[in-house]
């Protein structure tokens, strides 16, 4: 696939080689995570988007809403993950209207997985789905590259995650209070940002509980100490 010969000749005689185009693609060389806690789930992410070594966007929002209290963390190709998230947002919106009840996190995870699995040879998308619903509470699902679906207590993803497997494993506790869980996510992402060149910028979080979605923002120039809430 390195130098594939797929492509087509467009009207003006310009040959578009899809495989090569992919090479220059905007990549979310990322640190993302989602954790369950006592009252729901928390999603967290850095804000760096890179094209090779160039930072294409330093304040990216990688936490994407697909329904009121079902969100996802995106890693991999920005274009692919945005397209997938858009489709799922549409589907869940339709689900809520036609069934007269909000979708569950499982519904979202199932739709995400089908898209990722059926198009596995076209997509580079690593997703974490996290949501809250009144029946199942807070839940976290991970969909890595091949399109498999994994239910988890907490999930980490993106290039930066490889540096924090150890940190997360030793510091993880089930059923934390919200404050503790926010601290866990923040400290883990701080480590990822520190060691991964493809991760950086601000730390964004979304807390999903019975009360709805609550955004957090932490900035590097204050050492991620102050919450700039929105």
């Amino acid at each position: 696939m390195e130098f594939g010969n797929s492509g087509s000749l467009s009207e003006d005689g310009i040959h578009l080689d899809m495989d090569r185009l992919k090479k220059g693609e905007v990549n979310l060389g990322t640190s993302i995570m989602a954790v369950t806690f006592k009252d729901g789930v928390i999603l967290g992410a850095d804000s760096r988007t890179t094209t090779g070594a160039y930072i294409a966007n330093r304040v990216t929002d990688k936490l994407t809403r697909v329904h009121d209290t079902i969100w996802c963390c995106r890693s991999g190709s920005a274009a692919d993950t945005q397209a997938v998230a858009d489709i799922v947002q549409y589907q869940l919106g339709m689900f809520a209207m036609t069934n007269g009840k909000p979708p569950t996190t499982q519904t979202a995870a199932a739709i995400f997985q089908e898209i990722c699995y059926a198009n596995k040879d076209r997509l580079s998308a690593g997703l974490i789905i996290a949501g809250w619903d009144e029946r199942h509470g807070g839940q976290v699902y991970s969909i890595p590259l091949g399109g498999s679906l994994h239910k988890q207590t907490y999930a980490i993803g993106g290039s930066g995650s490889t540096y924090i497997y150890g940190y997360c494993d030793t510091h993880w506790q089930e059923g934390m209070e919200e404050k503790e869980a926010v601290e866990f996510v923040k400290e883990a992402l701080k480590e990822a940002i520190k060691w991964d060149g493809s991760s950086g910028g601000v730390i964004r979080m979304v807390v999903l509980t019975a009360k709805g979605a609550d955004r957090h923002l932490y900035l590097p120039d204050t050492d991620y100490k102050v919450r700039h809430s929105t």
Binding site: T36, F37, Q113, E134, H136, G137, V140, E174
Partner: peptide, 26 residues
């Protein structure tokens, strides 16, 4: 009971999922 996604692997927290609305039957 809680409804899994058909074919899913893995499990949630051993202490059970947090933040369920109490007292509701499904």
């Amino acid at each position: 009971l809680e409804l899994p996604v058909d074919g899913e692997v893995g499990s949630g927290p051993a202490v059970g999922a947090g933040g369920k609305t109490a007292g509701k039957k499904h």
